[in-house]
């Protein structure tokens, strides 16, 4: 049976069977560091129900999320794009859960000799770039309430759950904004009965309402993923 990561699910049975002996199923805790900037990239991670964050930390210690990696993505695209390390971005688990880990060397070899895998991984990279670039524009142009709604929707889509185990402190770090901003934006959404926040848990109560509260960016990213990788 194929796992619930969209990239792995898109592989043909033949390619999947070639990679499957190298799969290692892992459980990742919230906050677990997957990768530090500058380290050689030893493994790729295909999240099943966990959520990973690509983050950049500035010289003054301020951190912000620059990309989200869940059941629609893979962590470790550098492994098949040239150099096997990145100098800026780190990766950690923001929602605990399971993932499939695979040796980067194995993927690189298959990438070089297998056109189907290469095409799929490049399409997934294109989708991820769409997410990163749309998010960069969103963070510059849209108000915090819209960005929070977009971020919650992206998270929900990637962990397949309306219950998001996230503190407001954590969300504020991911969005690169002050905590009070997240608290007050969440209050607006809560008073509209779109979400409910209770000590470290956000529950999405009204999907359509949350989408209406978000900017266009959630739908734009989703449409691009659906186009490149198929609907989830």
């Amino acid at each position: 049976m194929k796992p619930e990561n969209q990239i792995l699910a898109n592989l043909s049975a033949d390619v999947f069977q070639r990679l499957a002996p190298h799969f290692v199923y892992v459980n990742l805790e919230q906050g677990e560091i997957i990768y530090r900037p500058g380290e050689p990239l030893s493994h790729l991670y295909f999240p099943l129900d966990c959520l990973l964050s690509l983050t950049i930390t500035m010289q003054n210690g301020a951190t912000a999320e620059v990309g989200m990696i869940g059941s629609r993505e893979v962590f470790g695209i550098n492994a098949f794009m040239g150099r096997r390390e990145t100098t800026q971005t780190g990766c950690s688990s923001q929602v605990a859960g399971s993932a499939i880990k695979i040796d980067a060397q194995v993927v690189r070899q298959e990438f070089d000799r297998n056109g189907e895998l290469r095409d799929l991984l490049l399409r997934s990279t294109q989708a991820f770039l769409a997410q990163v670039s749309q998010t960069a524009a969103c963070n510059s142009l849209h108000v915090l309430e819209q960005r929070l709604a977009r971020w919650l929707l992206n998270t929900q889509e990637r962990i397949n759950s309306n219950n998001l185990p996230l503190t407001q402190e954590f969300i504020s770090v991911m969005l690169g904004v002050r905590r009070a901003g997240v608290t007050l934006a969440a209050q607006k959404l809560q008073e509209r009965k779109v979400i409910q926040y209770r000590r470290g848990h956000v529950q999405i109560l009204n999907q359509a309402g949350l989408e209406a509260s978000a900017c266009e960016c959630f739908q734009t990213i989703k449409t691009e993923y659906d186009r490149l990788l198929g609907e989830k």
Binding site: V143, L144, R178, A180, G181, Q187, K188
Partner: peptide
């Protein structure tokens, strides 16, 4: 904070 100010104003007025 430019991000927080409009949200705070909205909530207080609300």
């Amino acid at each position: 904070d430019n991000d927080v100010r409009p949200l705070l104003k909205h909530n207080l007025e609300n």
